[in-house]
Design a protein around this nucleic acid. Structure first.
Lengths: 209, 209
DNA sequence: CCAAATCCCTACTGCGAGTACAGTACCATC
DNA sequence: GATGGTACTGTACTCGCAGTAGGGATTTGG
């Protein structure tokens, strides 16, 4: 790794720790440069402004998260051949993953950006949008596989269902933080799993109302 | 209304408009006092600091939102006697309510506070927590009525299910903003409605897998 | 009429983002 | 071994915003 590349990474690492612990606003550049052991000028050499730092953090975070999702789906695929079971396993794994995070999920960066519109510019919002669309695509594919074999018992749009995974995660994070009960997020995911199960699991027929 | 009371309300009104439009951080006190037609000293006479303003805004917002939920549940109760139908109608009304909001839900204040921990102190977080617990209690009561008549087809915790309403709303708002697709929130609520329906609607029995 | 309550006015501190710009250390290339 | 690019350091600013300090004015209720 080139010298500059290394410093840039050091800045991002230091910044990420601080941001996850205290929020983006609360993290000052002065503080970052102290911990990253360089000067303010050095910081601005690498990042045009705080926006550029946010963008880099988000992009890096999205990459990591995408990899995480991929691994998770990959594992679910290895564990069974049944597409519904794969989906259910994936959701279970997801819940466990989030459950295991020490003080709850560190707070999805996407949501952080969403709720601080002023701070971030078009580029950041675009990166955000792409990330969410990526999740949609991923989970949509998972559900596509399911409907190829199982008939849903309700007329749901698969894109919307795929979005529900992200939606429940994001909402679960907000709830967990608001309630100061870290386990809430995983619980909510398990409820979504219950829905998916109920939606696709075969049964004889509905009773008349 | 006393004179001071009136000024205080004027400040809150002006601040609320600005905050919903641009976010809390982006709204400066200088700007508020100009639009509210008073001086900085006048502002600080009414609010100790910006935190106190946030607290007042949140408390007022929670009151309005609680009233909204009450009205909504009240209407659902008037429309039918069946507790499941009441729940389904309530969720449908909720989706419509959010759908009708011009540029999507103005962004739930609770979530805003959650994602800017630095800014807000213990009091604000406590108010937040109380609000969320209030929603839980409300929707929990709704589902309690349902299980008194209908047997759920999956072993779900009713508090968690009640939380799912809030969770899906909050997550839906995040998704709507991230995707710049305001309709997403209402769609997600309708998916939750589909789950509730599927969870409680009577049917003959599940087929064996 | 008097004393709170409700402001106004001016001036100031302190912090953080960002700018300007000159100078430096190191490394590769010709 | 001179040249030039990359990656910084150091100093010294500006500007916007939160919050403070303190005196003065006005309005209102008892």
């Amino acid at each position: 790794m080139a010298r500059g590349e290394e410093t840039r990474k050091r800045i991002l690492d230091v910044a990420q720790d601080a941001v996850l612990a205290k929020g983006f606003d609360a993290t000052s550049i002065d503080e970052i440069v102290v911990n990253a052991e360089l000067t303010k000028s050095g910081f601005f050499y690498h990042f045009r402004d705080k926006n550029a730092l946010a963008l880099a953090l988000i992009e890096r975070h999205i990459e990591v998260e995408d990899q995480l999702f991929d691994d998770l789906l990959q594992r679910a695929y290895e564990l069974t051949e049944d597409p519904l079971q794969r989906a259910l396993i994936a959701l279970k794994l997801l819940a466990e993953l989030i459950e295991d995070m020490p003080n709850g999920h560190p707070g999805c960066v996407v949501a952080t950006a969403v709720y601080q519109d002023r701070l971030f510019d078009r580029e950041v919002r675009e990166a955000n949008r792409r990330a969410v669309l990526g999740w949609r695509r991923r989970f949509r594919a998972m559900f596509d596989d399911v409907v190829a074999v199982y008939t849903p018992h309700d007329d749901v749009d698969l894109d919307q269902l795929a979005d529900m995974v992200s939606s429940v995660i994001e909402g679960g994070i907000v709830m967990a933080r608001a309630l100061a009960e870290p386990s809430v997020t995983a619980q909510q995911i398990m409820l979504l799993r219950s829905y998916v199960n109920m939606l696709f699991s075969p049964r004889i027929k509905l009773a008349e109302k």
